[in-house]
Design a binder for these strands. Sequence first.
DNA 1: CGCAGCCTTGACAAATGTCAACAAACGTGG
DNA 2: CCACGTTTGTTGACATTTGTCAAGGCTGCG
Lengths: 232, 232
Amino acid sequence: MPESYYPDIKTLDLFAGLTDERFAQLMRGSYVQNFPPHVELITEGDPANFLHIILSGAVELFASWNGRETSMAAIRPISTFILAATIKDARYLMSARTLDKSRLVLIPSQDVRNLFDEDQGFARAIVTELAQCYRSTIKSQKDLKLRTSLERLANYLLRQQARAGTTPDFELPFEKRKLASFLGMTPENLSRAFKGLKPYGVVVDGSRIAITDRAELEAFARPCALIDDYST
Amino acid sequence: MPESYYPDIKTLDLFAGLTDERFAQLMRGSYVQNFPPHVELITEGDPANFLHIILSGAVELFASWNGRETSMAAIRPISTFILAATIKDARYLMSARTLDKSRLVLIPSQDVRNLFDEDQGFARAIVTELAQCYRSTIKSQKDLKLRTSLERLANYLLRQQARAGTTPDFELPFEKRKLASFLGMTPENLSRAFKGLKPYGVVVDGSRIAITDRAELEAFARPCALIDDYST
DNA sequence: CGCAGCCTTGACAAATGTCAACAAACGTGG
DNA sequence: CCACGTTTGTTGACATTTGTCAAGGCTGCG
């Protein structure tokens, strides 16, 4: 793969501690590929032959059962996804598809496992990344089991606004039907949930959301570090 | 701690590859403690000072928010719990309490992290264990988002019966109210769910469950490896 | 301009939660 | 060993939440 991508990939915590030599060796066996939107990259149940890294665009992880489908997570640059299956040399538990036009790096899983055994620092980084992902899903599970859909939406909006910066309004990062699935509800229910948050200062204009009174919304949503803080 | 416990603890995959010397050193800094039932061992939000191992008894992991509480998992011997917080040197995301009288090993988190950096095989084992836990929570999340409560119960019963062996009946491993919380429903709803499974050959007698026609129940529950197989 | 897909809304149905009452099981102390 | 009180499980009636179906409006794109 072209060396021009190296700096971007190096920004990942996962690779930060590698020597240039080892990093270059890992990249030599890897591919960079571009994909149009709405392409299925991974199908759940397939063996995990590659560790995937998203350089640009957006990827959705989703899962299916018995004719139903649900959004599990959205992945944005620059990060890896489905690390656990790569490490365990197991089958993917989730499918993945591009949301937008995206550029991905594919690293053969065997190379990742080899490097893990050779490089102590890399092993440490893998574990940290894995622990991070693990804790994120625990938070997500707490969110699902302890909150109603209205509360989940309220807290989601608070998190998004915090990410957007200091402005009181922001753009939803994907279409509402995806958001609904991500939050564990139907699109119709999401529509009504937005209206239900109107009394707490949530103003909706298409995919643009404004939170006019953060304190008011927080009083309802009761965000907490052990569920909503994705950095720890 | 007494050396008499060493063989039991050594049965854990996590420690299987350690030299006797390193293992003994790790154990030297650790404690064994006995606890009565219904004792809170860990409170969510606390710093993760110890890696916990359960030698006998049973432990429940649970989480709270805004006055509500939910069961996240049940841990049985011999296994570790809350490994991710130990590795990340972070705060616990879940609380833990004994369900029965239990014996636990507490290993200082710092010792685990040190050993991780020293011993390649141990690092590999930690990663495998972590990846396993991660994948289990993904499965659990798919279970929650893709299935109704009746389907979750049906699949849970099928899993339990498979674990119990060849007999068509088995004992629920904990009280029904816990099971309800674990499955993400109320005790009342669970009661009705059991009755709802009667047409598929589920016979309930107190905490004893019999599945009279596995094929019939499977036709309804539609168990699948990517959700219900906890070994991969 | 017209089609296709997404979002919204209303009416309705199903699933799930809540509250209250009561029965059954359990543990404790007499 | 029994009596008592506490806890758990069950059931019914009802409220709330959430999902389903159908229709219509809006938007973006060919």
